[in-house]
Simulated scan of single mutants.
Amino acid sequence: MSNNLENNDEIVDDYGQIKISDEVVGIIASLAATEIKGVAGMSGGITGGISEMLGRKNFSKGVKVEVKEKEVSISLYIIVEYGAKIPEVAWEVQESVKNTVETMTGLNVVEVNINIQGVNIEKEHKEE
């Protein structure tokens, strides 16, 4: 059986075609990002309000996906936990998202852009 990627996110094999929507890629990326220690959640980005942290039901929010032929570019808008080392968190998110999306979809992830939109300050820090 041969697997070939054709026409953006469409996989064609001996049995037919499989189409993966941009939203599915976004959901996969969001879940991979929020599993990383130091990530408080996804942000709505500019359109949803920078300080708005999205709930678990909005999995594809805070993610922008661009699929081109066999490649995909992903931009994530995240909120980090107070005290987290932002460069380390961003690097871990990039690695996790790239590996997870490539494994689950077969698409080649060419870039994962991380946009830090805010810092989640716990109640304890607010009271001090």
Rank of each mutant, 00 (worst) to 15 (best):
N4W: 06
N4Y: 00
L5F: 06
L5I: 10
E6M: 06
N7Y: 05
D9P: 11
D9F: 06
D9M: 08
E10M: 06
E10V: 15
E10N: 04
E10P: 07
V12G: 07
D14G: 06
Y15W: 08
S21W: 10
D22A: 09
E23Q: 09
E23M: 13
E23T: 14
V24C: 09
I27V: 05
I28L: 11
A29F: 11
S30T: 02
L31Q: 14
A33S: 08
A33M: 09
T34L: 00
E35A: 10
I36V: 15
K37Q: 04
V39L: 13
A40R: 03
G41K: 09
G41D: 06
M42K: 07
S43I: 03
G44F: 09
G44E: 03
G44T: 03
G45L: 01
I46L: 02
T47E: 04
T47N: 04
G49L: 13
I50N: 02
M53K: 08
L54N: 02
G55Y: 08
K57M: 10
K57R: 04
S60K: 15
K61M: 09
G62N: 02
V65Y: 04
E69V: 11
E69P: 03
E69D: 14
K70H: 15
K70S: 14
E71C: 14
E71Y: 14
V72R: 01
I74N: 08
I74W: 08
S75W: 00
Y77Q: 00
I79V: 13
I79F: 09
I79P: 01
I79T: 02
V80W: 07
E81W: 15
G83M: 07
G83Y: 13
A84S: 15
A84E: 14
I86C: 12
I86E: 10
P87C: 14
V89A: 10
V89H: 11
A90L: 14
E92I: 00
E92S: 15
S96T: 04
K98A: 12
K98Y: 10
K98L: 09
N99R: 14
T100H: 12
T100E: 14
V101A: 02
T103L: 06
M104G: 11
T105H: 01
L107M: 13
N108Y: 05
V109L: 05
V109R: 06
V110H: 05
V112W: 08
V112M: 03
I114C: 06
I114V: 15
I114R: 04
N115K: 09
I116L: 01
Q117G: 03
Q117S: 03
G118H: 08
N120P: 01
N120I: 00
I121C: 12
I121E: 05
I121Y: 15
E122Q: 10
E122C: 12
H125N: 12
E127A: 10
